[in-house]
Amino acid sequence: MTRSFSNPMQHPDWIDPHSRAWYEQLAGEYGEYAYPWKSEFEEPRAEDTFGQLLAASIGENSRLLDVGCGHGDFLHRWAIKAKEAVGIDIVDAFIATANRRKPQQSYRFIAVNANEGLPFEDDYFDVVCSKKGPWLFRENNREGRRVIKPGGTVLHLMHGGTDGGLRALFPDLYTPVPAFDTNRSLQHIANHLELPGSGLSDIEIRIIEETEYLSRPVDVLIKKYFGQSRRLREQVWRERLKDIEEIFHKHVTSRGLKVTNLYYIVTGRAPA
């Protein structure tokens, strides 16, 4: 008999999100980093806000590095005017998809483990960005500071969690967390990214609360189990979908089940 797991992280197939194994499994199933659940958003979306900041930082002579580029869709949309746009990612399958889809020759996508050094010349990039990927400007990592030009722009988007009532409705799927505190959150991000030792100037952290409406009961599960194995998903669907449907339909709005996604946008500048 298959054992039931009310806590998904107790399942033997559970893989920690954003680990190397998680990305490899995701790439093996989809070939890209794209969200499979159905939802709609109130504008502006956090990723669009980040993309607009990126586009505004790029000139016709700019060289751009996207760290943790996934399948390249973000660069395709926002870096079209760059002289050269380079995306790196640790997952070979993501890079293969990105190179198949690249819109022009000024784009390059390379499989690179950013923690083991970067295959670029010193002072090569005008802009270094990362959308939920690795942060290259920790105190003991000189690679980010090495490859960016003096005065270059750094942009980083971090996902800070999902709630908006989702954790209260489904506490066995989404662990309850303390009430949001702006000062505590900003300090946590500064410490997590080691911003005081980053060597960057003009550092700013912007908090964005993004409102999303999940379209169907199953989307609650798809969102939670994104990147997990098919076997784990099928077991949870059998055991939990009926309960999820009851809660979903009790609280759904005309647009869907309202949730809030928290993001941080960090910007800075390399010393001139």
Rank of each mutant, 00 (worst) to 15 (best):
K83N: 06
N61E: 12
A56N: 13
I58K: 05
L75I: 05
G72P: 08
D66F: 01
S62K: 04
F74P: 10
L65S: 07
F74H: 13
H76C: 12
N61M: 12
A79D: 03
F50A: 14
F74L: 14
S57N: 08
A55P: 03
L54Q: 05
E84I: 05
H76S: 12
K81M: 05
A82T: 00
V86G: 10
F50T: 11
L65T: 01
A56T: 07
G51Y: 10
C69W: 02
R63P: 02
L65R: 03
Q52K: 02
F50P: 14
Q52R: 12
D66S: 11
Q52L: 13
D66P: 00
V86N: 06
G51V: 02
S57M: 06
R77F: 06
I58L: 03
V67L: 04
F50H: 04
H71S: 15
K81I: 06
S57V: 09
E60C: 02
N61S: 13
V86M: 03
S57A: 15
L54K: 05
L64T: 05
I80P: 00
L65D: 13
I80F: 08
F50D: 15
R77E: 07
G51N: 08
G51K: 05
G70L: 02
A82E: 05
G51C: 00
K81R: 14
V67C: 05
E84Y: 00
K83L: 13
C69G: 07
A55Y: 02
V67Q: 12
C69M: 06
Q52F: 09
A79M: 01
C69N: 11
S62R: 05
G72R: 12
V67R: 09
F50M: 15
W78I: 10
L75E: 03
R77I: 06
G72V: 09
Q52I: 14
A85M: 02
A56L: 04
G51F: 00
E84L: 12
F50Q: 13
D73V: 12
H71F: 00
A79W: 01
L64A: 06
G59N: 13
L54P: 13
A56I: 00
G70A: 09
N61V: 07
L75G: 14
V86D: 03
D66H: 10
V86Y: 06
A82S: 11
N61G: 14
R77H: 12
I80L: 13
K81E: 14
L65H: 11
A55S: 14
G59A: 08
A85S: 14
G68N: 10
K81C: 06
E84A: 07
L54V: 15
S62F: 01
Q52Y: 09
G72A: 11
R63D: 11
E84F: 00
L75R: 04
S62W: 03
G68Y: 08
A79I: 07
G68M: 04
H76F: 13
R63W: 10
D73P: 00
K83P: 03
L64I: 07
V67T: 04
V86H: 05
A85H: 01
G68T: 09
A82G: 08
G70H: 06
L64P: 02
E60G: 04
L75D: 04
D73T: 10
A85Y: 01
E60I: 03
